[in-house]
Protein backbone atom coordinates (compact mmCIF):
# COMPACT_ATOMS: atom_id res chain seq x y z
CA UNK A 1 0.00 0.00 0.00
CA UNK A 2 3.08 2.23 0.06
CA UNK A 3 2.26 3.99 -3.15
CA UNK A 4 -1.38 4.67 -2.50
CA UNK A 5 -2.07 8.33 -2.65
CA UNK A 6 -3.60 8.71 0.78
CA UNK A 7 -4.50 12.26 1.56
CA UNK A 8 -3.46 13.71 4.86
CA UNK A 9 -6.89 15.13 5.38
CA UNK A 10 -8.75 14.79 8.59
CA UNK A 11 -10.94 12.13 7.20
CA UNK A 12 -8.70 9.10 7.19
CA UNK A 13 -11.52 7.37 8.94
CA UNK A 14 -11.43 4.07 10.69
CA UNK A 15 -10.17 1.49 8.25
CA UNK A 16 -10.68 3.70 5.20
CA UNK A 17 -7.93 2.29 3.04
CA UNK A 18 -9.04 4.08 -0.05
CA UNK A 19 -7.17 5.79 -2.85
CA UNK A 20 -8.28 9.18 -1.60
CA UNK A 21 -8.10 8.30 2.08
CA UNK A 22 -11.76 9.17 2.34
CA UNK A 23 -14.59 6.96 3.48
CA UNK A 24 -16.70 5.35 0.75
CA UNK A 25 -19.91 6.06 2.58
CA UNK A 26 -19.19 9.71 3.19
CA UNK A 27 -18.18 10.21 -0.41
CA UNK A 28 -21.37 8.51 -1.51
CA UNK A 29 -23.52 10.66 0.74
CA UNK A 30 -22.00 13.94 -0.48
CA UNK A 31 -22.55 12.88 -4.06
CA UNK A 32 -26.12 11.99 -3.31
CA UNK A 33 -26.61 15.44 -1.78
CA UNK A 34 -25.06 16.99 -4.89
CA UNK A 35 -27.62 15.20 -7.01
CA UNK A 36 -30.42 16.32 -4.69
CA UNK A 37 -29.51 19.92 -5.58
CA UNK A 38 -30.70 19.14 -9.09
CA UNK A 39 -33.90 17.62 -7.76
CA UNK A 40 -34.88 20.51 -5.54
CA UNK A 41 -33.60 22.99 -8.09
CA UNK A 42 -36.10 21.62 -10.57
CA UNK A 43 -38.98 21.86 -8.13
CA UNK A 44 -38.00 25.35 -7.02
CA UNK A 45 -37.67 26.54 -10.62
CA UNK A 46 -41.07 25.12 -11.49
CA UNK A 47 -42.51 27.01 -8.56
CA UNK A 48 -40.73 30.24 -9.49
CA UNK A 49 -41.96 29.95 -13.06
CA UNK A 50 -45.54 29.39 -12.07
CA UNK A 51 -46.08 31.36 -8.92
CA UNK A 52 -47.25 34.66 -10.28
CA UNK A 53 -48.61 33.46 -13.55
CA UNK A 54 -52.32 33.36 -13.17
CA UNK A 55 -54.88 35.00 -10.99
CA UNK A 56 -56.85 31.87 -10.26
CA UNK A 57 -57.29 30.95 -6.64
CA UNK A 58 -55.57 32.46 -3.62
CA UNK A 59 -52.27 34.19 -4.26
CA UNK A 60 -49.18 33.71 -2.12
CA UNK A 61 -49.36 37.05 -0.33
CA UNK A 62 -53.01 36.42 0.51
CA UNK A 63 -52.50 33.06 2.04
CA UNK A 64 -49.10 32.84 3.69
CA UNK A 65 -48.84 33.21 7.43
CA UNK A 66 -45.29 34.49 7.70
CA UNK A 67 -45.13 34.59 11.49
CA UNK A 68 -46.22 30.97 11.71
CA UNK A 69 -43.83 29.77 9.04
CA UNK A 70 -41.03 31.78 10.63
CA UNK A 71 -41.47 29.84 13.85
CA UNK A 72 -41.46 26.59 11.88
CA UNK A 73 -38.31 27.61 10.08
CA UNK A 74 -36.65 28.50 13.34
CA UNK A 75 -37.53 25.11 14.76
CA UNK A 76 -36.00 23.33 11.79
CA UNK A 77 -32.90 25.48 12.04
CA UNK A 78 -32.51 24.58 15.70
CA UNK A 79 -32.89 20.93 14.82
CA UNK A 80 -29.69 21.32 12.81
CA UNK A 81 -27.99 22.43 16.00
CA UNK A 82 -29.27 19.48 17.96
CA UNK A 83 -28.20 17.20 15.10
CA UNK A 84 -24.66 18.48 15.17
CA UNK A 85 -24.63 18.03 18.95
CA UNK A 86 -25.71 14.43 18.42
CA UNK A 87 -22.87 13.88 15.96
CA UNK A 88 -20.45 15.47 18.37
CA UNK A 89 -21.65 13.19 21.17
CA UNK A 90 -21.37 10.14 18.93
CA UNK A 91 -17.78 11.03 18.13
CA UNK A 92 -17.01 11.31 21.84
CA UNK A 93 -18.70 7.92 22.29
CA UNK A 94 -21.10 9.66 24.65
CA UNK A 95 -24.02 7.35 23.96
CA UNK A 96 -26.46 8.92 26.35
CA UNK A 97 -26.20 12.41 24.92
CA UNK A 98 -26.09 11.06 21.39
CA UNK A 99 -29.45 9.40 21.91
CA UNK A 100 -30.80 12.46 23.66
CA UNK A 101 -29.90 14.84 20.89
CA UNK A 102 -31.06 12.41 18.19
CA UNK A 103 -34.46 12.18 19.83
CA UNK A 104 -34.70 15.93 20.27
CA UNK A 105 -33.76 16.43 16.62
CA UNK A 106 -36.45 14.01 15.58
CA UNK A 107 -38.97 15.79 17.79
CA UNK A 108 -38.08 19.18 16.38
CA UNK A 109 -38.35 17.74 12.89
CA UNK A 110 -41.70 16.23 13.72
CA UNK A 111 -42.84 19.59 15.04
CA UNK A 112 -41.82 21.15 11.78
CA UNK A 113 -43.72 18.54 9.78
CA UNK A 114 -46.68 19.00 12.06
CA UNK A 115 -46.51 22.71 11.37
CA UNK A 116 -46.48 22.02 7.65
CA UNK A 117 -49.49 19.77 7.91
CA UNK A 118 -51.35 22.43 9.90
CA UNK A 119 -50.34 25.05 7.38
CA UNK A 120 -51.46 22.96 4.42
CA UNK A 121 -54.82 22.19 5.91
CA UNK A 122 -55.30 25.88 6.69
CA UNK A 123 -54.46 26.83 3.12
CA UNK A 124 -56.76 24.17 1.78
CA UNK A 125 -59.61 25.48 3.86
CA UNK A 126 -58.90 28.94 2.54
CA UNK A 127 -59.25 27.70 -1.00
CA UNK A 128 -55.79 26.68 -2.12
CA UNK A 129 -55.94 23.08 -3.22
CA UNK A 130 -53.42 20.98 -5.07
CA UNK A 131 -55.41 21.28 -8.25
CA UNK A 132 -56.69 24.82 -7.77
CA UNK A 133 -54.01 26.65 -9.69
CA UNK A 134 -50.44 26.57 -10.93
CA UNK A 135 -49.39 28.15 -7.66
CA UNK A 136 -51.24 25.49 -5.71
CA UNK A 137 -49.79 22.52 -7.62
CA UNK A 138 -46.23 23.78 -7.59
CA UNK A 139 -46.33 25.02 -3.98
CA UNK A 140 -47.64 21.80 -2.54
CA UNK A 141 -45.32 19.70 -4.70
CA UNK A 142 -42.23 21.64 -3.67
CA UNK A 143 -43.01 21.85 0.03
CA UNK A 144 -44.47 18.35 -0.02
CA UNK A 145 -41.26 16.88 -1.41
CA UNK A 146 -39.36 18.75 1.25
CA UNK A 147 -41.71 17.49 3.94
CA UNK A 148 -41.31 13.92 2.75
CA UNK A 149 -37.54 14.34 2.93
CA UNK A 150 -37.86 15.60 6.49
CA UNK A 151 -40.09 12.68 7.38
CA UNK A 152 -37.63 10.20 5.94
CA UNK A 153 -34.99 11.94 8.03
CA UNK A 154 -37.08 11.53 11.16
CA UNK A 155 -37.48 7.83 10.44
CA UNK A 156 -33.72 7.52 10.01
CA UNK A 157 -33.09 9.36 13.30
CA UNK A 158 -35.48 7.15 15.24
CA UNK A 159 -34.10 4.07 13.51
CA UNK A 160 -30.64 5.10 14.65
CA UNK A 161 -31.79 5.38 18.23
CA UNK A 162 -33.56 2.03 18.06
CA UNK A 163 -30.79 0.20 16.28
CA UNK A 164 -28.24 1.63 18.66
CA UNK A 165 -30.23 0.35 21.61
CA UNK A 166 -30.19 -3.12 20.09
CA UNK A 167 -26.58 -2.84 19.08
CA UNK A 168 -27.58 -3.32 15.47
CA UNK A 169 -25.61 -0.53 13.87
CA UNK A 170 -23.06 -2.21 11.61
CA UNK A 171 -19.62 -0.72 11.54
CA UNK A 172 -18.65 2.74 12.66
CA UNK A 173 -21.53 4.25 14.62
CA UNK A 174 -20.09 7.75 14.72
CA UNK A 175 -19.86 7.80 10.97
CA UNK A 176 -23.42 6.55 10.51
CA UNK A 177 -24.66 9.35 12.76
CA UNK A 178 -22.53 11.83 10.86
CA UNK A 179 -23.99 10.72 7.54
CA UNK A 180 -27.56 10.92 8.78
CA UNK A 181 -26.58 14.35 10.04
CA UNK A 182 -25.38 15.40 6.60
CA UNK A 183 -28.72 14.38 5.13
CA UNK A 184 -30.56 16.24 7.89
CA UNK A 185 -28.58 19.45 7.42
CA UNK A 186 -29.17 19.28 3.70
CA UNK A 187 -32.88 19.11 4.24
CA UNK A 188 -32.51 22.15 6.47
CA UNK A 189 -30.58 24.19 3.90
CA UNK A 190 -33.16 23.39 1.27
CA UNK A 191 -35.70 24.91 3.60
CA UNK A 192 -33.49 27.97 4.06
CA UNK A 193 -33.83 28.49 0.32
CA UNK A 194 -37.53 27.67 0.18
CA UNK A 195 -38.34 29.97 3.10
CA UNK A 196 -36.70 32.90 1.36
CA UNK A 197 -37.77 32.30 -2.22
CA UNK A 198 -41.27 31.04 -1.56
CA UNK A 199 -42.43 32.81 1.58
CA UNK A 200 -40.46 35.97 2.08
CA UNK A 201 -40.35 37.17 -1.50
CA UNK A 202 -43.91 38.04 -2.42
CA UNK A 203 -45.11 37.42 -5.95
Amino acid sequence: MAETAISHGHDVGHGAHSSTGLSNNKLGMWMFLGSECLLFGGLISTYMLYKGRVNAGPQPDQIFDIPFTSVSSFILLMSSLTMVLAVSAAQRKDERNMNLWLVITALLGATFVGGQVYEFTAFYREGLGFTTSLFGSSFYTLTGFHGVHVSVGIIMLMALVGMNRNKRIPGDRAEVVELVGLYWHFVDIVWIIIFTLVYLIPS
Partner: peptide, 12 residues
Protein backbone atom coordinates in the same frame (compact mmCIF):
# COMPACT_ATOMS: atom_id res chain seq x y z
CA UNK B 1 -13.04 18.15 5.49
CA UNK B 2 -11.17 17.06 2.41
CA UNK B 3 -11.66 19.45 -0.49
CA UNK B 4 -13.00 16.67 -2.69
CA UNK B 5 -16.29 16.78 -0.79
CA UNK B 6 -16.49 20.50 -1.41
CA UNK B 7 -15.89 20.07 -5.12
CA UNK B 8 -18.46 17.31 -5.44
CA UNK B 9 -21.21 19.08 -3.56
CA UNK B 10 -20.65 22.56 -4.92
CA UNK B 11 -20.35 21.31 -8.49
CA UNK B 12 -23.83 19.82 -8.14
Amino acid sequence: DNKLFTYLFYSG
